[in-house]
Design a protein around this nucleic acid. Structure first.
Lengths: 166, 166
DNA sequence: TTGGAAAGTCAACAAGGCTGACATAAAATC
DNA sequence: GATTTTATGTCAGCCTTGTTGACTTTCCAA
């Protein structure tokens, strides 16, 4: 029975019940994850889509529109609507490429950087307190599971973002 | 320096860089998390909102509309639109409460159960493969962090769902 | 018996996805 | 040099899913 016990121990986390808990945890946690930035954006004329664009532009200054499209996984029409308003309002600057003049390289202005910072500060604060509450080992596990849950493409994008040190 | 090293070891996972990675991991992983059910729903006339309603009705058969509202965190008008189509199409049955006849108790029909099963099968398959890839320890950490990331209310709901054994 | 809670409905609106069609400029290729 | 491909932007229109506000019906409970 010893080997049976150890066998079931190893597979315990793969029962449908455990998987369902994982699914529901993702659902509730994602709500918390977006709650703080959403609250900040409520007053302004922006939404979650604007936050995502600002985040990845700040993350990779000078990124092209096509690049951003691939990362965000939306259509250019969707992204364009968001970018247009950010550019009009002076939060994002679009510079014509030097080598390839078809490309637009995106940068945050001071104003855009300020907003993104306030949004990500709020999000980081929650992440920090969750990490602190769960402990270092848990954080490692958290990232392993999330990475394994991604689509191949997303994982590649995530990993190449990881490697860059801004 | 021994105590300094151990001190920085303990805080290493709280650097802004680590937190940013956590944020991006949530973003990419959530996309993967919803991708499979979304693909199935694409053909049908339903969306993610329908999936969520079906999930929690199957999870807690006989739940009231108010209960579901609290869990899903949307307005009754939003939920009503979704429930109406599910009831019309014969996936959900709405039974008037016996004790309190104002209440509607929600149940899945065979048809609703079949659809929910096919959606959650797909979602569980991804979760299973992520859990398997990451290992039991990681799964524990994953859930600890997610739980700590939830709002108070959501955490209470999550925990009371956990305790129920259907 | 009356106040208020639970549930449902209608209307209107917004964010943010999507498709399709088309325009322009520039690079790449033949 | 002509043609094709690529990167971007834009217009129009559609869908889902969220919102608010106003109103009705039902019916429990004080």
């Amino acid at each position: 029975m010893q080997s049976t016990a150890s066998h079931s121990d190893n597979l315990l986390f793969l029962t449908d019940e455990q998987l369902r808990k994982g699914i529901e945890a993702m659902f509730f946690a994602y709500r918390g994850f977006t709650a703080d930035p959403d609250r900040i954006l409520e007053g302004l004329d922006y939404g979650r889509a604007h936050h995502r664009a600002l985040h990845f532009i700040r993350r990779s200054p000078g990124t092209t529109v096509n690049n951003l499209l691939a990362i965000l996984g939306v259509t250019k029409q969707s992204l364009n609507r968001v970018l247009r308003s950010l550019i009009e309002d002076g939060l994002v600057e679009s510079r014509i490429g030097r080598n390839d003049k078809r490309e637009r390289h995106l940068h945050l202005t001071k104003k855009g950087d300020d907003l993104e910072r306030s949004l990500s500060d709020a999000q980081r604060a929650r992440m920090r307190s969750a990490f602190r509450a769960a402990g270092p080992g848990a954080v490692q596990g958290f990232r392993l599971v999330l990475e394994a849950m991604m689509d191949e493409d997303a994982r590649r994008q995530f990993q190449s973002l990881k490697e860059t040190t801004p």
